[in-house]
C-alpha cells in the first residue's frame, strides 16, 4: 500500500503528485501488479485533499494502462514500472559510476546536474501533456515540470 505525501508548496498540481508518487512506487516495486491502491476515501481522510483530485489522478493512471478500476472493489495495479529493479545490472553500473564520481571529487549537486544533463540529452523533457513526463528521478532536479492546467478534464 502506498501513502501519498502532498507538498502544497511544490508548485506541482496535487493530482500530478499522486500520479508521480504512484509511478515511483511502481518503479521501486513498492507497488506490484495485483496490488490495490488506497481508496479515495482513505487518501482524503489522511491528506485532507479533495476526493475528485484523487479520482482524477487514478483516471490518469488508468488512461496510461497502469491501473484498472474494478467496480465496487477498488483500483488495482495492472502492470509495474520496475524496468530497473534494485538488483538489475543497470542499477549496479549506475552505482559504480556514482562511486567513481564521488572519488573524483564531485559533490552531490555536481552529480545531480551531470545526471540531469545526460538525462535531458536522451529523454524527452518533462512538462508535456500530463502523464507523459517521467517521475522525478532520485536526485531531484529543480521542479521545472510545470504541469499545465489540464484542458480537457472530463470531471
Amino acid at each position: 500500500m502506498v501513502e501519498y505525501r502532498i507538498d502544497r508548496h511544490s508548485g506541482v498540481a496535487t493530482y500530478v503528485q499522486i500520479v508521480q508518487q504512484t509511478k515511483q512506487a511502481l518503479r521501486l516495486g513498492v507497488l506490484r501488479p495485483g496490488d490495490k491502491l488506497p481508496t479515495a476515501r482513505e487518501v482524503v481522510e489522511a491528506t485532507a485533499i479533495n476526493p475528485n483530485t484523487v479520482l482524477k489522478a487514478y483516471r490518469e493512471l488508468e488512461r496510461e494502462g497502469l491501473v484498472e478500476a474494478r467496480r465496487g472493489l477498488g483500483t488495482f495495479v495492472r502492470r509495474g514500472l520496475s524496468t530497473a529493479p534494485a538488483d538489475s545490472p543497470l542499477r549496479t553500473e549506475l552505482d559504480a559510476w556514482a562511486v567513481r564520481a564521488r572519488d573524483t571529487g564531485l559533490d552531490r549537486e555536481d552529480v545531480a546536474a551531470l545526471f540531469t544533463a545526460v538525462l535531458e540529452e536522451h529523454f524527452a523533457p518533462p512538462g508535456g501533456p500530463p502523464g507523459t513526463s517521467p517521475a522525478a528521478p532520485a536526485p531531484r532536479p529543480p521542479a521545472h515540470a510545470e504541469p499545465a492546467h489540464p484542458q480537457g478534464d472530463p470531471s
Partner: peptide
C-alpha cells in the same frame, strides 16, 4: 478537514 473530505468521498 480529512473527516469532511472522507464524508464527501
Amino acid at each position: 478537514m480529512g473527516a469532511l473530505m472522507s464524508q464527501a468521498a
